[in-house]
Amino acid sequence: MLKINNLSATVDDGNKTILEALSLEIPAGEVHAIMGPNGAGKSTLSYVLTGRDGYDVTGGDVTLDGEDLLDMDPEERAAKGMFLSFQYPLEIPGVPTMTFLKTALNAQRRARGEEEMGAPEFLKKARALASELKMKPEMLKRPLNVGFSGGEKKRMEIFQMMMLEPRFIVMDETDSGLDVDALRIVADGVNKLRSPDRGMLIITHYQRLLDYIVPDRVHVLSGGKIAASGDADFAKTLEAEGYDAYAA
């Protein structure tokens, strides 16, 4: 599904190398976790995968279902099914959540040559999913994320995932700012989204989240490349022993 092959990337107009020939393959149906120390390039990886400005790809390629992503704009990648759950979801004042999501959903559908979703169907789906995530209906009328708590913002990210039904989900530090209850709700949402034709990459500093979302594979990102890989138990070892052994 998602193939990252020898990916290198720099920031600051090429002055700082963050990713160095990173290779990783996540097959459909699998959930992989990337762990690693601060500054290892975890967030950079998520931004390079989704096409944020300010990162220069200096080598390698990334394909989703065989299609090269790196030449696409962020919105094209989104339409192909890439979804990034942000560590700090943005507040968008003046744009109601429902307007935002409906615009996004139908823009993606248009880009894929599909028919747009009408208002009644959209509303029905939104209401059902909101109640599943125990979100207050009035949250959907408020401007996106404005005045939401950290937990509410993360729940809103899960809600967006469920509405947009992406092919591949990258979660950047999804557990930061969550208490145990919120973490459980978020993890339940993510687990429901696991499916044979969807892949996920979970970026996290701590092992805690992986108690709730059990990954198929765990990788250590250090020095801009994958330094080690293992199964779900590997995360516990890393938590106990730290990342020193993999320092670049």
Partner: peptide, 11 residues
């Protein structure tokens, strides 16, 4: 905010 919106598919 612009990147966030584009990441969700809005041109």
């Amino acid at each position: 905010a612009l990147f966030y919106m584009r990441q969700r598919g809005i041109p």
